[in-house]
């Protein structure tokens, strides 16, 4: 196993007496794309802000390549390239002039700027003022500034925001390539699981400031207990629901489109059917549907 390049240790943030981040702990390794996933307001951006030193942590720390972001900021952050929330740049300057600004601060050469500009596909617009850029172009410029100084950790807060499908795909391929070929640790936040699916090796799910789950993407999708959603067309519906709730108190039961919807695994389907028949419920149809990724996500984040 490689040594972790980013170590988040019991990170907490209290704002105005309210605990917004409630103690996150996770490691990120070189060469992986880590998806930081959570619904709106979960605390992704707040965590990222602490990781890059924009805000102080109320407790805990983020260690980047052995340096604490709190106590050894300059050293720690010199390994990081980031976009936090929107890639806000100087609108009255051109894209190139913006990159020059950052290049002066990290001593990047002009040829590196040219290289990066080509890489993010902005050659044609780089000398136009940023105020003329579309959101997607600004994301690309944001990516360019994050990569200028050859970081070992790339942190991107909702980078697909504003990208068209082709752009998302390009970004995905590019991030995977960076991780694979340059051994960069890439951290990508998003509230859209579907986007993360093809991009990430691992995902960490945050919900209300807590880390709910850290899992390999594969495991997450093909989850351990292969529960499926099974819809029973039954009559009388209310009787069936009552019996099922009593008999299977641990299962999720819902009524949808005049059908009884249960989250159960394969084996339980016949069990439930015979139970229903025994209790005087007539069955007219059974449909089972594999759980989608979004369902899994919603399930994890709504506990």
């Amino acid at each position: 196993m490689k040594k972790a390049i980013v170590q988040i240790k019991d990170l907490k943030k209290v704002i105005k007496g309210k605990e917004i981040i409630k103690g996150l702990t996770f490691d990120i390794y070189p060469g992986e794309v880590f998806g930081f996933l959570g619904p709106n307001g979960a605390g992704k951006t707040t965590t990222i802000r602490m990781m890059v030193g924009l805000t102080s942590a109320s407790a805990g720390d983020a260690i980047i390549d052995g340096n604490s972001i709190q106590n050894n900021f300059e050293k720690a952050v010199s390994k990081v390239g980031a976009i936090v929330e929107n890639p806000d740049m100087y609108k009255f300057l051109s894209g190139y002039q913006n990159l020059k600004q950052y290049a002066r601060m990290v001593s990047a050469t002009d040829s590196r700027i040219d290289e990066i500009v080509k890489l993010v596909g902005l050659e044609n617009a780089i000398h136009n003022k940023v105020k003329t850029y579309s959101l997607g172009m600004r994301q690309r410029l944001g990516l360019a500034q994050a990569l200028l100084h050859h970081p070992s950790v790339l942190i991107l807060d909702e980078p697909t925001n504003g990208l068209d499908p082709a752009g998302i795909r390009e970004l995905r391929d590019y991030l995977r390539k960076l991780a694979r070929e340059e051994d960069i640790a890439v951290i990508v936040s998003s509230h859209l699981l579907s986007e993360m699916e093809l991009m990430c090796d691992r995902i960490g799910i945050v919900e209300k400031g807590k880390l709910v789950k850290v899992e390999d993407m594969n495991e997450f999708i093909h989850g351990d207990n292969q529960e499926t959603q099974v819809t029973f067309q039954v009559e009388p519906l209310d009787l069936a629901e009552r019996h099922v709730r009593e008999q299977f108190p641990n299962s999720q039961v819902a009524i949808k489109d005049n059908g009884l919807v249960l989250s159960i695994n394969r084996e339980e389907i016949s069990e439930v059917s015979s139970f229903l028949l025994h209790n005087g419920v007539r069955i007219y149809g059974i449909q089972s549907k594999a759980k989608s990724l979004e369902d899994r996500f919603l399930e994890v984040t709504s506990q």
Binding site: V52, G53, L54, F73, E74, K75, V77, S78, V80, A82, V84, E85, N86, P87, D88, M89, Y90, K91, Y102, M105, V106, G142, Q145
Partner: peptide, 14 residues
Amino acid sequence: STGTIKLLLIRPIH
């Protein structure tokens, strides 16, 4: 006000 402070302060500079 323009948000540019973020990209300014995440450089290895005090």
